[in-house]
Design a binder for these strands. Structure first.
Length: 188
DNA sequence: CCCTGATTCGC
DNA sequence: GCGAATCAGG
């Protein structure tokens, strides 16, 4: 496949809409996300926040001139801390009080100190689908949200896949961490 | 592990 | 110009 005008247009459009490179690649077909990213760069629109008139694109220099040989030195931290989730903690629901050091800006203060009903409903749903894994089955990419009573057999961990470095699945993240604000409006 | 974009460099 | 391999991060 080659970058025809049409394909480039689609690329520009989708990239402008904030679509990810992989999504664009998938849409276009015949190209990988790397190809898309490469093209984006070549087109000079890598920075989605195009400098509309001013060239303030001062990025940090990356003097990494690695030899292109083989066997790159992969850093392996080998760091594994299983944390300590269940322990006489029936109600682990993190309640975020006002533990903010005074004198801070606190820009987005939505005065909503409750867990959104949506999030709760979501949790109820996913808990049905939860994998009910045990403590030992927890990995870095399984939701560590505890469900049930640790003192009984009715206890398990959600176990659903987490996304980024978060300890919980998407739904539980929503309950654990108060969203800065309800984001129900989408710009488009 | 999944994902994201950024960069390099042989082609 | 192209994009796989790699890097860097969530």
């Amino acid at each position: 496949m080659s970058w025809t005008d049409e394909r480039v247009e689609i690329l520009k459009k989708m990239w402008g809409e904030g679509q990810s490179a992989s999504q664009i690649a998938k849409e276009l077909g015949g190209v990988t996300r790397n190809a898309v990213i490469g093209k984006v760069h070549r087109l000079g629109l890598s920075n989605r926040a195009g400098s509309g008139g001013g060239k303030a694109a001062a990025k940090k220099e990356a003097p990494k001139v690695e030899a292109k040989a083989k066997a790159p030195p992969r850093a392996k931290p080998a760091d594994a801390k299983p944390k300590e989730p269940a322990s006489e903690a029936k109600t682990i629901i993190p309640m975020r009080k006002a533990i903010i050091p005074a004198g801070q800006p606190l820009p987005p203060q939505p005065s909503a100190n409750e867990i959104s009903p949506e999030a709760l409903a979501k949790v109820n749903e996913i808990e049905k689908k939860s994998k009910k894994i045990s403590l030992m089955e927890l990995t870095e990419r399984t939701c560590k949200w505890p469900v049930g009573d640790p003192a009984t057999e009715d206890f398990w961990f959600c176990g659903l896949p987490v996304q980024a470095g978060k300890p919980y699945c998407e739904a539980h993240v929503g309950v654990a961490f108060q969203p800065m604000s309800s984001r129900r409006d989408r710009r488009r």
